[in-house]
Simulated scan of single mutants.
Amino acid sequence: MNRNIKILVIEDEGAIRNLISTALQTNGYKYEVASNGSSALSLLSTHQYDMVFVDLGLPDIDGVEIIRKYRTFSTTPIIVISARSNDDDKINALDEGADDYLTKPFNVEELLARVRSTLRRTQYLDNKQTEEEHIFTNGLLKIDYISQSVFVADEEIHLMPIEYNLLCLLAKNVGKVLTHQYILDKVWVNAIESDLSSLRVYLTSLRKKIEKKSHEKYIQTHIGVGYKMVRVTSTEEE
């Protein structure tokens, strides 16, 4: 049941890291571990996770800084695990984008309950968004998800299947930077490293098709990281 859920555990204390890892493995969750902030940021920028546990007291980078940086390109749920019990520390972590806060020492059953409740909430929000949003509009760009049609300035444009899937992925995450690896994982099947060059080719082609008629820049390149669709305010062609 949980085999497709992947969790990153960012924790420098070996005993706590092993405790969490064992609990996740026993309950069928996939997981990866990072013992410091640098390795954690590397994993976060190149892999997609369904949830992240982060300790605030890491040896090299404060956990709050990791949360702050991760939130610039991902909305993946974050649960803080920390010995810091001060309310100010909790509030600061939550304000920076954490979804929940678990104070050490903690009960394994409580940790697993937090995982389940967070995943349920995320799934509910994803399902609700899918049900309610059949049409996406951004400036002169419109996507009809039901008919799988794309229009620019009320004129339909024809996209290849991969181009359409790329556009939908960016549109459903408008304003967020999606890493190369995240896009490859979502759009390609069994993505390999060489597919990165294909991604660049398809993005270039997609850009030309949607920006030729609108003269608006919808897709931003974040060199070395990935791509982002920006919100365009114009509603009619000049």
Rank of each mutant, 00 (worst) to 15 (best):
K176L: 13
G63Q: 01
I61R: 07
T204C: 08
L170M: 00
I183A: 11
T26H: 13
V150E: 07
V80Y: 05
V152Y: 00
V54Y: 01
K172H: 10
V115N: 02
D87P: 13
F136W: 07
E133R: 08
S82V: 04
S74W: 01
V80Q: 08
V174Q: 14
S147N: 13
N190M: 09
E193K: 14
K209M: 02
L206R: 01
Q148E: 15
D88Y: 11
K217M: 12
A40K: 03
V115S: 06
K208F: 02
Y164H: 06
D50T: 04
Y101G: 00
I192M: 14
K209T: 03
D87R: 15
Y182C: 12
D154F: 05
S85H: 14
A98Y: 01
F106M: 02
L8C: 10
F53T: 06
R114F: 12
A191V: 03
R231T: 15
Q220A: 13
T122I: 04
I223E: 11
S38R: 13
N92A: 14
R121W: 09
L119A: 07
G28Y: 14
A113D: 11
I78P: 01
D185W: 06
W188E: 09
I219V: 05
N2A: 08
R114I: 12
I91D: 10
R71G: 02
W188R: 05
V187T: 02
T76G: 05
V225Y: 10
I157S: 05
A15Q: 11
L166G: 00
L167T: 00
T118H: 09
E65R: 06
L196M: 14
L58D: 00
E131S: 13
D100I: 06
G224F: 09
K6Q: 12
Q123E: 15
L112M: 02
L56V: 12
S45A: 14
T46S: 15
Q123R: 14
D55P: 05
E110K: 10
Q148C: 12
Q220M: 15
A113V: 11
A83N: 09
I79S: 01
R71C: 04
L8G: 11
V230G: 08
N4E: 14
V80W: 08
I7D: 05
L159I: 03
R231C: 10
P77R: 02
T26L: 11
S45H: 12
V150A: 03
V52K: 01
A113T: 14
D87I: 15
T103F: 10
L56A: 04
V80T: 06
P105L: 01
K186M: 03
W188Q: 09
R84V: 08
N127H: 13
T130D: 14
F53R: 06
D99L: 13
S42I: 07
R3D: 15
D144Y: 10
V108D: 01
V232L: 00
I7L: 05
P77V: 00
K142M: 14
S45Q: 15
I146Y: 09
E133H: 07
I183Q: 07
V225K: 11
G63E: 03
D185H: 09
G57L: 13
K209P: 06
S205P: 04
K209C: 02
T221W: 02
I67E: 03
E155H: 13
E11L: 04
N36S: 13
A23W: 10
N92Y: 08
T72E: 06
S197I: 12
L111C: 10
K212T: 11
G57S: 15
N2G: 10
A83W: 01
S234W: 00
E216P: 00
I78Q: 06
H158F: 15
A34T: 04
I219M: 04
